[in-house]
Amino acid sequence: MEDLKKRKMEEMGNNDQLSTQEELRSLLDPLAKSQLVDLLSRLGSQYPSIAEEIKSIASSDPVHRKLFVRGLAWNTTSETLCAAFRMHGEIEEGAVIYDKATGKSRGYGFVTYKHMESAHSALGAPSKLIDGRMAVCNLACEGLTGASTTPDLAQRKLYIGGLSPDVTSEMLLNYFGRHGEIEEGSVAYDKDTNESRGFGFVTYKTIEAAKKAIDDPQKILWGRTIIVKLADTHKGKPVQTQVPAAAVVPLAMPMAPGYPQLGKAHPSATPAGYAYTQPVAPYQASSYSSPAAAPAPYPSQSTIPYASIAAKKDPQGIPPTTPMGMSGYPYYIGK
């Protein structure tokens, strides 16, 4: 009889526990993520057992253990990448990403640690010199929206131009390291030939260090005077845009009164009284006045009287010279 009572009591207790869990779930379900995070963080700080359970669940999720590494050299392999990050803890998986078509490195990779604490340790020192280039890591779930895309990045990232082909990324970092701590930087190399393209980029951790590098009067590296400026100013050069032909409206060139355009009727076009000296037959009067000019968009010029010129006759009745037209050009008569 007593065993039966005990079983009934246990069953009732289990039913009560199930009903309590369901009730709690129904209460927690409508809550926002920020409210749940705040609630669990307070419970975890009060009860160590809850804190341990939260850590265990978080550590089993790769989102807290997987790192995205960018800025890798073209010749960096997966083995080299893992060797650089192994100092922080045991690596579960690590690989450089290669282009499927060309088989060449795409300049980035991923490292997944076995324990969450190892990933946090690596994030404490995100910049690492690998194969002569400064690589940077952040949580893979953040992608490119990590620490390097902070609002002040435009004031910390510098463009370095005019580099000698012999300057390596390591030399570049050593040279600019005198102004402050560098977060990221490298010489730009050609993907196919792996040769320097004559420029590079350096990102400082502080705006002050970037300003020092720009204001430094001695900008000579490997015997060459180099260009140092903010990367955004180099990227934002003005580009000349072509206006589409459809948007161009043809406009007629204005002409002075007295010179009508060919193929168009200009009944109001009246000669403005321009005068040109040329051999002509004698006029009855010594001078003539131009007719009054009609109102026009251009101010009319004052009239100039023509001087009377006596025409010399050749004994045979042929003009001594070819008649000259306007501005000294001869008339041509069609055959």
Results as ranks from 00 to 15, higher is better:
176 F>L: 03
200 G>D: 03
197 R>S: 04
274 Y>G: 08
190 D>P: 06
272 A>K: 08
249 V>L: 05
229 K>Q: 08
283 Y>Q: 11
219 K>W: 08
193 T>Y: 00
279 P>V: 13
283 Y>M: 13
288 Y>F: 05
230 L>S: 04
280 V>D: 08
257 P>V: 08
177 G>A: 06
215 D>C: 02
259 Y>S: 13
207 I>L: 01
220 I>F: 11
264 K>Y: 10
192 D>L: 15
246 A>K: 13
240 Q>I: 07
272 A>P: 03
179 H>N: 02
238 P>W: 04
266 H>F: 14
206 T>V: 01
260 P>L: 01
241 T>Y: 11
292 A>I: 03
249 V>T: 04
212 K>Y: 05
208 E>I: 02
271 P>H: 15
179 H>K: 04
191 K>V: 09
238 P>S: 12
241 T>P: 06
245 A>N: 08
183 E>S: 00
269 A>E: 07
247 A>Y: 08
265 A>L: 15
235 K>C: 09
291 P>C: 13
259 Y>A: 14
234 H>C: 10
178 R>C: 02
249 V>F: 04
181 E>G: 09
241 T>G: 07
263 G>L: 05
217 P>A: 12
202 V>E: 01
248 V>I: 12
192 D>E: 11
228 V>K: 06
197 R>F: 03
251 L>A: 04
285 A>F: 08
246 A>M: 11
289 S>C: 08
259 Y>E: 09
220 I>M: 12
210 A>Y: 00
218 Q>L: 10
164 S>C: 13
161 G>W: 08
234 H>I: 07
206 T>I: 00
236 G>R: 06
252 A>Q: 09
254 P>K: 04
177 G>K: 01
248 V>Q: 09
187 V>I: 10
288 Y>S: 11
290 S>Q: 12
242 Q>D: 09
204 Y>K: 01
235 K>T: 12
288 Y>K: 11
205 K>G: 07
266 H>Q: 13
164 S>E: 07
291 P>W: 15
182 I>R: 00
247 A>F: 06
277 T>N: 12
214 I>M: 06
236 G>V: 01
290 S>R: 14
165 P>G: 05
248 V>R: 09
247 A>I: 03
256 A>Y: 09
214 I>C: 03
212 K>I: 00
192 D>M: 12
194 N>A: 10
236 G>P: 03
271 P>R: 15
195 E>C: 12
237 K>S: 11
267 P>I: 15
242 Q>A: 11
239 V>F: 13
277 T>G: 10
169 S>R: 04
242 Q>Y: 09
197 R>G: 03
286 S>K: 14
268 S>Q: 14
188 A>E: 13
247 A>S: 14
237 K>T: 08
191 K>S: 10
213 A>E: 05
221 L>F: 02
259 Y>F: 15
